[in-house]
Simulated scan of single mutants.
Amino acid sequence: MTKKTESPTILLIAGHWLGAWAWDDVREHLDSAGSHAVAMTPPGLDPDDPQRAERTLDDQVTAILDVLARNGVSASTPAIVVAHSGANFPVSLLLDRHPELVRRVVWVDSGPVAAGSAFAADLPEDVQDLPLPAFDVLAQQASLEGLGAEVLARFRARAVPEPGPVLRQHVDLANGARNGIPTTLVCCSIPSAQLLDLARGGHPMFAEVTNLEHLDVVDLPTGHWPMWSRPRDLAEVIRSAASHTG
C-alpha cells in the first residue's frame, strides 16, 4: 500500500443507543494529539428527529458518506473508520459499497458482519424501537466493567432507543474488496486469543474475521464501552492504527 503522509480523517461511530456524544472523552485525547477526529450520530439516534424510529441501515450508510464527503474524504484521501459494537452493521455495508473511501477500519469490541445477517431479524414488526434495557439485563449481554455510577447515569439519560428497521434489516454484502481493507480489532470484553479461536471455529459472530487479509489485533482489557472506561488508552490505540501505512 502506498504510504500516506497526511493525517487522515478519523470517523468515530458508536454502537446502539449512542450518538456522537459517546466519543467526547476519546475525541479530546485525539484532538490534543493533533488528529482530525469526527464523531457522528447515525440516523435514528437523534432524539430530536421525529421520524427516527423509521430510519434504516441504508439511511445510516448515506449519512456516513455525507460526513466523509464533508470532511474531504475521497478515494485519494481515504478515512480511518472506527466502529464500536452495533455500528458494525452500517460500517460493513459502507466497506462493501465504498471500500475505496476507507484506509483502515478499527473495530472496537466489534467486527465485520456476515452477508445476509441481521442484528435482530426476529424482532416483531410492530416493535418500533428498542430502548436501552435495565443495566442488570444489559450486563448479561455485554460487560459493564469500568463504568461507575456517574457514567451509567449519563448512559441512561442520553441513550436513544434503537430503531426497529435498523435491527431487523439484513445486510446485502457482495464485494470481496471489503476484506482487503487493513483492519484493527480492538478486543475489550473478549480477549483476542479467545475471539480468534471462536472465529476459526466458525462462530457466527466472529467467522468473518478469518476472511480479513490485513489484520492487526490489540487487546484493551475492559468492558464493552472502552470509550468511557479507558478513553485515553482507546484514543492511543486509534491514533496508532491511523498511523499505520499498510
Score class of each variant (00 low, 15 high):
Ala115Ser: 15
Gln169Ser: 13
Ile190His: 05
Asp59Gln: 05
Val113Trp: 01
Arg239Gly: 15
Thr56Tyr: 02
Asp129Phe: 00
His16Lys: 03
Leu147Tyr: 07
Leu30Met: 10
Arg156Tyr: 02
Asp126Phe: 08
Ile181Glu: 11
Trp17Arg: 04
Glu54Asn: 05
Asp109Leu: 09
His170Lys: 15
Arg27Gln: 15
Leu95Cys: 14
His16Ile: 11
Leu94Ala: 07
Met205Ser: 13
Glu150Thr: 11
Val91His: 03
Glu100Asn: 07
Gly34Ser: 08
Ala83Met: 03
Ala33Leu: 07
Asn211Glu: 13
Phe155Thr: 07
Leu123Met: 11
Val209Ile: 15
Asp49Gly: 09
Thr245Ala: 12
Arg97Met: 03
His98Gln: 12
Pro191Leu: 09
Ala199Asp: 08
His84Phe: 01
Arg232Phe: 00
Thr41Pro: 12
Ala153Pro: 02
Leu132Lys: 03
Thr56Lys: 05
Asp46Gln: 06
Pro204Arg: 13
Asn175His: 07
Glu28Pro: 01
Gly246Glu: 15
Asp58Val: 14
Leu234Ala: 10
Asn211Thr: 12
Leu138Ala: 15
Trp21Asn: 05
Arg27Gly: 08
Ser240Lys: 05
Glu208Cys: 06
Ala242Thr: 06
Ser240Gly: 07
Val127Thr: 12
Thr210Asp: 11
Val171Met: 00
Ala79Lys: 00
His36Asn: 13
Thr222Leu: 07
Trp21His: 11
Asp25Tyr: 05
Asp216Gly: 04
Thr5Lys: 04
Ala79Cys: 10
Ala20His: 14
Asp126Tyr: 07
Val237Tyr: 01
Leu147Phe: 05
Pro99Ile: 13
His214Asn: 11
Thr77Ser: 13
Leu212Ile: 14
Arg70Ile: 04
Asp129Pro: 00
Leu94Asp: 06
Gln128Gly: 06
Thr62Glu: 09
Gly202Leu: 10
Gly176Gln: 04
Glu6Pro: 06
Arg97Lys: 12
Cys188Glu: 03
Gly202Asn: 11
Thr222Gln: 04
Asp122Val: 07
Ser189Asn: 08
Ala37Val: 14
Ala33Cys: 06
Asn179Ser: 04
His244Leu: 14
Gln51His: 14
Asp24Val: 03
Pro78Met: 09
Val81Asn: 04
Ala33Ile: 02
Val38Met: 13
Arg200Glu: 15
Gly223Ser: 11
Gly86Tyr: 03
Arg178Trp: 00
Ile10Thr: 15
Met227Thr: 01
Trp23Ile: 06
Ser189Ala: 15
Ala33Trp: 01
Ala118His: 02
Thr183Glu: 08
His214Cys: 09
Asp136Arg: 08
Pro231Ser: 10
Glu28Thr: 15
Leu30Ala: 07
Met205Trp: 08
Val108Ser: 10
Pro221Thr: 07
Gly19His: 11
Ala149Trp: 00
Arg55Val: 10
Ala120Arg: 14
Gly201Asn: 12
Thr56Asp: 08
Arg55Phe: 01
Leu185Arg: 09
Leu138Val: 08
His16Tyr: 06
Phe89Pro: 00
Val105Asn: 02
Met1Pro: 08
His244Pro: 00
Val171Ser: 05
Cys188Arg: 02
